[in-house]
């Protein structure tokens, strides 16, 4: 059984790309650099951001999603059946290349297995996190020009995502996070959306978390038990820690979002600690992980790192209090 410090600290997934890496990507896109250099730079960037996370004390790092431009795009580029028309706005001045499904969805080859293996080799931590975009979100964030319904598309994607998660399990991954930020977007679709996620994790025996952000959690709550995952990673800092009561009675783990990823103001450790004491009124500390609200990639790297440092320092304040009660460790749970 693998143990983790109580209130394990982790990230949701993405982390700012180092500036030099962005320059190389730009050079690659305009033909100045080749594949080989890009691969070398990507590897170096992953090593750099693992180091950032471990240096500030993150217990469960990710590879910062260095190789991914965007969470749906990346998968759509590697699954047969998609094409791209151009960028679409998500908020403010932020865009993504929203894919369109134009033919049958087909699994071609492993998508993130190499990412995991590289991360595993370069992290000193016993557990690392791999993120994978969920079938419902890929379906919802794509234009559907091929399937009769979004439901049909989501279940086709569930097969593909399920295959990928099993491949991750085969090579030794311990913790996969399925990202489903779109899950509550269309309340009428939630019944089958939850089934599509369950289909994707069917037969999986490793820890699976589910990340849902910027959403109406009261819509998610009725599905907490039904969803076959161990953990829900939710965003709370952005909403000023409103809606905490939604996790009351949660029988699974919570990945508690304590860092606002859309603000450049670095939180104080005491602010993080206060939020943690608050959430512990609703949930036992043995079932709480601590993370930012969402991926950090839109922040400057120095701010992202400072925010993670503040988060870890805030956790330390609470850990000291919990240690007085003899609470210092929790097991890595595959099932709750």
């Amino acid at each position: 059984m693998i143990s983790l410090p109580i209130l394990p600290t982790t990230v949701i997934g993405s982390y700012p790309r180092p500036k030099w890496f962005r320059e190389i990507i730009k050079g690659y896109k305009n033909g100045r650099y080749g594949e080989e250099l890009l691969k070398e730079a990507s590897d170096d960037a992953v090593v750099s951001v693992i180091s950032d996370q471990e240096e500030v004390g993150i217990d469960i790092p990710s590879d910062g999603e260095m190789r991914r431009d965007e969470m749906v795009e990346y998968f759509a580029e590697r699954i047969e059946g998609f094409r791209f028309y151009g960028p679409v706005r998500v908020w403010g001045n932020n865009f993504f290349r929203k894919p369109a499904v134009v033919s049958k969805i087909t699994y071609i080859r492993p998508i993130v297995v190499d990412e995991y293996l590289f991360l595993r080799r370069h992290s000193s931590r016993p557990v690392v996190k791999v993120t994978i975009t969920g079938p419902y979100t890929i379906a919802d964030w794509s234009f559907n020009e091929y399937y009769n319904s979004k439901e049909e598309l989501a279940f086709e994607l569930a097969k593909v995502i399920g295959t990928e998660i099993k491949k991750l399990e085969e090579v030794g991954s311990l913790f996969v996070q399925v990202d489903e930020p779109a899950l509550t977007t269309h309340p009428k679709e939630m019944d089958w959306a939850v089934q599509a996620i369950n289909k994707a994790v069917e037969g999986v025996n490793i820890k699976v978390g589910l990340h849902v952000c910027y959403s109406n959690y009261s819509l998610l709550k009725p599905y907490f038990d039904e969803l076959r995952v161990t953990q829900f990673a939710l965003e709370f800092a952005n909403r000023g820690f409103r809606d905490l009561e939604v996790v009351k009675g949660l029988s699974k783990e919570l990945g508690f979002g304590v860092i606002d990823v859309h603000s450049r103001v670095v939180e104080e450790p005491e602010y993080v600690a206060k939020a943690l004491f608050k959430i512990m009124e609703y949930l036992s500390p043995e079932y709480i992980y601590v993370n930012p609200d969402c991926g950090l990639k839109l922040l400057p790297r120095s701010i992202a790192k400072a925010k993670l440092r503040a988060m870890v320092e805030g956790v330390m304040i609470v850990r000291r209090e919990l240690a007085k009660k003899g609470l210092t460790e929790i097991p890595l749970r595959n099932k709750v």
């Binding site: 998500v90 908020w91 929203k98 977007t185 269309h186 910027y214 000023g240």
Partner: peptide, 9 residues
């Protein structure tokens, strides 16, 4: 903060 605009991404 950021909030979803109806049923859209």
């Amino acid at each position: 903060g950021l909030y979803r605009f109806y049923e859209n991404n």
